[in-house]
Design a protein around this nucleic acid. Structure first.
Length: 300
DNA sequence: AATGTGTCCAACCGCACCTAC
DNA sequence: TGTAGGTGCGGTTGGACACAT
């Protein structure tokens, strides 16, 4: 445990006994410290963290107290694995806002910015590294959009849940004239947003929300890679066209001409799901990877 | 069983912004 | 207006744990 010398309880209105040095604790919090902090906030409320730390008798600085409370002790903090719904939300919000963790966390009740940040760094960035691209690259964003996120949706639906969410908690009303009383799974009202449509690869049409500060989706899709056909239907708040993407039969050739993905090299031992796999991310198989390279990464 | 390596996450740090004086 | 303290945010670190060799 590190210690740093600081001043004692020296609030200008409270410190009448002069300034005396005290040791400032750092590192992991003890159960006793947690109880002191919880009791103090229960009785006095939160805020004014520096004076709170002093007056509660905690040998911690205010920032440490605030962090401990917000990230761990707060009653409504959700613990446990990030659910597929939450993963989907994180991916979507990050694609929109980047590393605005606190803003993203506002849409995941009970989750802290720290937790989301850790999730991103440990899970998402790991896969970007395995793809040998940057998380901010088009490659990776396309992979997320067209493979990872649909897979999450499949998992959610396989679990019997409906994917209906809208990330618009801060509606830009100048872009929305009609109202929608749907409620998303974050508890926020679902409002329509302007959309754009564009032709995408293979002549399929991809439509997506284009409003700068909203992202509403109602996604339904199915895929059957055994048939080498990938159907992807998206209905954004029931107001734009369904999207259908069908890719070709890759089963006859599984060797990557560009070398970006070569099963014989990348998946030694026949492990076709060694990356982008695991409990918390969708399982991508060899056809997915082919799809990534042939249709998302070509020309990049 | 011992050691090495990777993963996860709580906590810290530096910076920017806000507010009161 | 300038300054100091408080607060919030994003980046980074380090230790505990799990897994592989």
């Amino acid at each position: 445990m590190d210690h740093v010398s600081i001043r004692g309880c020296s609030s200008s209105s409270e410190n009448t006994q002069g300034e005396e040095d005290m040791e400032l604790r750092r590192g992991p919090w003890t159960v006793e410290e947690d109880l002191i902090l919880i009791n103090y906030i229960t009785n006095h409320g939160e805020g004014r963290w520096n004076s709170l730390a002093r007056c509660a008798g905690l040998k911690r600085n205010g920032k440490s107290c605030r962090l401990r409370w917000l990230n761990y002790l707060r009653p409504d903090v959700r613990r446990g694995n990030i659910t597929p719904e939450e993963q989907l939300l994180i991916l979507e919000l990050h694609s929109r806002w980047g590393n605005r963790w606190s803003k993203i966390a506002q849409h995941l009740p009970g989750r802290t910015d720290n937790e989301i940040k850790n999730y991103w760094r440990t899970r998402v960035q790991k896969h970007a590294k395995q793809l040998q691209c940057d998380v901010n690259s088009k490659k990776f964003k396309d992979t997320m959009r067209y493979l990872w996120m649909p897979r999450l949706v499949e998992r959610i639906q396989a679990a019997g849940n409906t994917v209906t969410h809208n990330l618009n908690n801060n509606i830009n009303t100048t872009n929305n004239t009609n109202t929608n009383t749907n409620i998303d799974f974050t508890g926020n009202p679902v409002l329509p947003m302007p959309t754009v449509s564009s032709n995408d690869y293979y002549g399929s049409q991809v439509s997506m929300d284009a409003s700068p500060d909203s992202l509403g989706t109602q996604v339904s899709m199915g895929s059957d890679l055994k048939d080498q056909c990938y159907n992807y239907q998206v209905d954004y708040n029931n107001q734009i066209d369904n999207t259908q993407i069908t890719h070709h039969d890759y089963s006859k050739s599984l060797t990557s001409p560009s070398g970006f993905f070569n099963p014989g090299e990348q998946f030694q031992g026949g492990d076709q799901t060694m990356w982008l796999g695991g409990e918390d991310v969708p399982q991508f198989n060899i056809e997915d990877l082919w799809f990534i390279e042939q249709h998302l990464f070509s020309g990049v």
